[in-house]
Design a protein around this nucleic acid. Sequence first.
DNA 1: AAAAAAT
Length: 616
Amino acid sequence: MRSSWADLAANSAAENAPPTSAANNANNNNTQPPSRPVYVPPHLRNRGPTAPAPASSERFSAPTAFDNSGSRWAPPPRNDYRGRGGGGGFGNRTGGGGGWDRREANPFADQDDSEEPVTQEEQENTGINFDAYEDIPVETSGGNVPPPVNTFAEIDLGEALNQNIRRCKYVKPTPVQRHAIPISLAGRDLMACAQTGSGKTAAFCFPIISGIMTGQPAQRPPRGVRTVCPLALVLSPTRELSMQIHEEARKFSYQTGVRVVVAYGGAPINQQLRELERGVDILVATPGRLVDLLERARVSLSLIRYLALDEADRMLDMGFEPQIRKIVEQMDMPPAGVRQTMLFSATFPKEIQRLASDFLSNYIFLAVGRVGSSTDLIDQRVEYVQESDKRSHLMDLLHAQRANGVQGKQALTLVFVETKKGADALEHWLCLNNFPATTIHGDRTQQEREAALRSFKSGNTPILVATDVAARGLDIPHVAHVVNFDLPNDIDDYVHRIGRTGRAGKKGLATAFFNENNASLARSLQDLMQEANQEVPAWLSRFAARSSFGGGKNRRSGGRFGGRDFRRDGSFNRGGPDYQGAGNSSGGYGASGGYGGGYGGYAGNSAGPGVTSAWD
DNA sequence: AAAAAAT
C-alpha cells in the first residue's frame, strides 16, 4: 500500500532509512511520483491505488492557497468537517523538505494480522470486560455537553482510524470513551476523570488523530528552518508512560498519514531529532526533554491545536507545575481557547483542578466511574506488618502465590517501595532468595529501566520492584498482584499504584503493608476501601479514628478525589474560572444523581448509596 | 522526605 507520496519521501530521506523499514516497502507499487512535493492531506497519504479513495476526497483534490485570515494561529478544527465541503484548499507542507517521511513500520506486526471481525464474545475474552463497566456513575458539568455515543460507528472517525480500532480489537467504546470522544470532537476543552485502566489514552488520541486528518492543513515554517511544528502535544510524567502512549498512538494512527513522534530524556537526543525531522503531527513527550527541544528551537509549539496532559494532576503538582507552565504559557503555544486542551487522570484533587483551569477555556468536566479509581475489581487487602517483618512477609505472599498459582501461570507481581535504594536492596534480596526480580527507578539508566520493564512484561522476571516511577499509567498485562511494600504518603498515589492491576475489566489483587509509619494514610485508606466495598480491618479503623482529629492532608472530605467538578464548590467558585454551565450540569443526560440540584446544594452525605460517598 | 523530569 505504497503511494507516490511514499516514494517521494523515501527518496528524499533514504539515508535515514532504518533497516526494518525495508520489509514494509516490499509491496511498493511504482506509481509515478510527482515532480515536486505537493501537499497531501493526511487522510490521503499512504493510500495505495488499490484502496479506493472515499467519496469525500474530491474536496481535497484541487489545492488552493490556504488562507489563514491573517491570524497567527489557525483555529483548531471544530466539529464541522462533515459539513465543510470543499472549504479551504491545502497549502504545501514546505517545512521539512517537502513533506512527511511516509515510511511507517507496522505497529500491529506482532499480532496475527487476520482482518476478521472480532465478535463481542472474543473481545470480552481477550480484551476489555465490558460487564465490569455496566452501571457506573457518570458526571458531567459545563455548558452544552455533547451527548455520549454507544458505538464507534456513531462517530465519524474516518475509515483508516476505524480500521485501526478493529485491528486493536476494540468492539465498542469504554464509558470514558463514550463520553469524552464526542466532547473532544466537538472541539471542547475537557477535564476528564476516569478509573485506571479504563481506556483514557484512546479517548484523547482518537479525536486528535481524527481532527488532524480532517482539519485544515498547517502552515509550515519557512524553508531551511529546522524547527518542526507539531499540531498536537501529549505530555506525560514518566518516560515509560510516554513510550507507551507513543506505541498506542502509533497503532491508532497507522496508515492515517498522521505521524506520531516521542521525545523523552535519558535516551540519545539525536535519534529523536531525526524522527522529528521526518515530520511530526503528534508529539508525545516528557516535560524536561521537550523544554530542551524548545530551547534548541528544534520544536515550535506555534501550530499546536491539541494539548493533552495525561496524568494531569501529577503534571500540575509541585514537581512539574513550573515546567508545564513554561511549556504551555511561556513558549509559543496558542493560548487556551485557541488550542483545544484535554486533561485526563484517574485522580483530580480540587486544588489541582483550580490550577488546571488556567489551561482550559469553557471546559467540560467529566467523571466516569467510582472514586479516583478503585473498582471492586481490585481486591484490596491491608496487613499490619512491622518494618522489620516486611521482607519475610513478602516472602510468605510470594510463596503462597507460587503454590496457588494465583490467576494462572503468567501472574506478575509488582512491588512498590518508597525509595530507590530500597528498591535495589529488595530486588537484591529477592534474587538471593531465588525469586526472579528486577527493579525500575530513577537511579537506573534509561536502558536499564526499559530492559526491566520488558523483562517483567515478558514474565522473564515476574517480580518487579518499583518506585513511584511505575505508579501511573503503565499498562502491563497480567499484573495479578500489586504489593505496597511501603505505602505511599498520598492516597492518590495508592489509587494509581493499585491501578496497575485490575485493568480493562479484569480482576486484580492489591496487598498493602501497613504500620505506625502510615498512620496519616489510615483515614483516607479506610474511606477508599469502604467506597470500593472492601473489607476494612478493625485495627485499621482504629488507626483511622485515632488520626482523624486534626484532619490531615489525606482527608477525603472536601474532595481529594476526582469525581467532583471544583467549580461546583462554592469556596472555589469566587472570582473563579469561566464556569458558565453550573446550572445545567447534567446536560439532559447521564447520571446527575447525587446532586441536590445546583452546585451549592450538593447533598453529598445523604444522597443514594453507590454514588454519594464515591463522589465526595 | 521521596520521586519524577534535560545535559
